[in-house]
Design a protein around this nucleic acid. Structure first.
Length: 501
RNA sequence: GGCCGAGUACCCAAGUGGUCUAAGGGAACGGAUUGCAAAUCCGUGAUUCGCGGGUUCGAAUCCCGCCUCGGCCUCCA
């Protein structure tokens, strides 16, 4: 069965066929902005892109996956899309400066908060750390191929070239305020991706378009490509004066630079559909003269937390590192964020995280059991080999991860059969998409701290109590550990512990 | 206001016209095991798919209306 994906552009399921059957699949993902740590909602989108990439590989294609790290600051004011308010990178700098004063920065961090490049680099490296823990393949590849995770600040020349092309082709103009705008009326297909066609935008209005900028633009939906501003915190020379690029420009420029004018796949969160991706399509198609920028547009719906929209004020806002510090394994977080279909809103819960951990532990135990009976040469396919067939066909059906996991779990309940080597191979193959076995342990930060020291002392006390058969004392110690949020397990190799999540 | 998704057991979730008296996981409960736990193993668990109509021999699945939740309509993954 071929891989079928839902394409936002056509609003339908389509068989996936790469543009170039001999070359790699060209895949661009909208990555993080680095003026803060990425939260779990961001990671749901990035991880779904990773699952898609791994699924395409499971189907036998090679993939060239690019994910940008946006290190230019965007503006804070949401009532002015054409550039207004404070740059978010300088805002982040102020936040870091305050954290520095109050001693809230991680030890050993030496950073100049007034330097936006340093701020960006600080958060970018933290993002890469989180992303690698979670098994984002492109972040792993970035170690040896840094160009796969491009930074807009290093691609300003490409952006300027793109603006020049658009002006030369009549798709962009310099307005009386000196700002370069894209002319949406020059691109009749504008609105095809999001449904926000030009007539609808005019009708909708929504009161979000400021009158001052309206006056100089040919159409209210015209968007900024270059803003001259000699006072801006991050600025570059350009034919239109010293300033900074529009926020849709970087993806068009970097995708073209690294993948070519026409790509197979482009992913992002659902909120990117409009205006960001709509504007990318307009820029890229007008610059290339081709009917498509990306053949398929893949959008992940938003994540809720405990049934509510995630927000800092509700206290249900989590970054990946918050959870790692609580002892959550990267594997459990990865599974919790990817196990629900990407086109439905998923609900992140602590209970869900525990459910995922249990599943992963059972899969690991099954793998260990297979290893233990290695050498068994039973003929015929065993349950995991049969499950792999269903697993792959579920993923090929628009990434039905839940059904794929169901197939794997069902195999676990069957009587073991088949060659254990082939069975382990099938399980390993499923894990090439799930990506959980290699990250099923809490991070060091969660196991080597003050709590760990205290737990070690308590466990020793309990060991002595048990040796003396003083079970009342032993149980008191366990109660104390439970109160500290620690679960213990007596096994043949002694007692192990973990934080209860 | 306009446009788009979604509502399946205590929780997560698959299933989109007959094989559904609805997969799978977790929780819970009963049993085996354990000093007691944990883990493991065995077993129990929706006659029903937000609500009300309709189409059909047959509906969780299609149609209409209503309710609830979520998203987008130039901050956002």
């Amino acid at each position: 069965m071929p891989l079928r994906l839902y394409n936002t552009l056509t609003k339908s399921l389509q068989d996936f066929t790469p543009i170039d059957p001999s070359g790699p699949v060209r895949f661009y993902s909208c990555g993080p902005t680095v003026y803060d740590d990425a939260h779990i909602g961001n990671f749901r989108s990035f991880l779904n892109a990773d699952v898609l990439r791994r699924t395409i590989e499971l189907c036998g294609y090679s993939v060239r996956h690019v994910m940008n790290i946006t290190d230019v600051g965007h503006m804070t004011e949401d009532d002015n899309a054409d550039g207004g308010g404070e740059d978010k990178m300088s805002l982040a700098g102020r936040r870091i400066a305050e954290a520095k004063k109050s001693g809230a920065l991680p030890p050993g961090t030496d950073i100049d908060p007034s330097n936006p490049y340093a701020v960006a680099e600080f958060y970018a490296s933290r993002f890469l750390e989180d992303a690698r823990h979670l098994g984002l393949k492109v972040a792993e590849e970035e170690r040896t191929q840094p160009q796969l995770m491009p930074r807009p600040t290093r691609c300003v020349q490409e952006m300027i070239a793109l603006v020049s092309t658009l002006i030369a082709r009549g798709n962009a103009y310099v307005a009386s305020d000196g700002v370069v705008y894209f002319s949406v009326m020059s691109f009749p297909a504008y609105g095809q991706l999001s449904g926000n066609t030009l007539d609808k935008i005019r009708e909708g209005e929504g009161g979000r378009i400021s009158a001052a900028h309206q006056a100089v633009k040919r159409h209210p939906a015209d968007f900024m490509l270059w803003k001259p501003d000699p006072t801006h915190i991050m600025r570059w020379p350009s034919p239109w004066g010293e300033g900074y690029p529009g926020w849709h420009l970087e993806c068009s420029a970097m995708a073209e630079m690294l993948l070519g004018s026409e790509i197979d796949l482009h992913s992002g969160g659902e909120d990117n559909i409009f205006p960001h991706h709509e504007c990318e399509v307009a820029q890229s198609c007008c610059a290339s003269g081709l009917p498509y920028f990306s053949r398929v547009w893949f959008h992940t719906r938003h994540l809720q937390v405990e049934g509510e929209k995630m927000s800092k004020s509700k206290g249900n806002f989590f970054t990946a590192r918050d959870l790692f510090a609580k002892g959550v394994t990267p594997a459990a977080l990865r599974l919790e964020l990817t196990r629900t279909h990407y086109r439905t809103n998923s609900n992140f819960t602590m209970q869900g995280l525990r459910d995922c951990q249990r599943m992963i532990d059972r899969w690991s135990a099954a793998d260990t059991a297979l290893l233990a009976r290695s050498g068994d040469g039973s003929r015929g396919d065993g349950p995991f080999q049969r499950a792999l067939v269903e697993f792959q066909s579920a993923l090929e059906d628009d990434l039905n991860v839940a059904r794929a996991i169901g197939a794997l779990n069902a195999a676990l309940n069957e009587t073991p059969a088949g060659s254990s080597g082939a069975e382990r191979g099938a399980l390993a193959r499923m894990n090439t998409v799930l990506g959980v076995f290699e990250r099923n342990a809490p991070l060091q930060s969660a196991t080597q701290d003050d709590l760990a020291t205290r737990v070690a002392v308590l466990l020793e006390q309990r060991k002595q109590a048990r040796a003396a058969k003083d079970f009342a004392a032993s149980d008191r110690v366990r109660d104390e550990l439970t109160a500290l949020g620690v679960k213990i397990k007596d096994g043949p190799q002694g007692t192990t512990w973990e934080r209860s999540v």
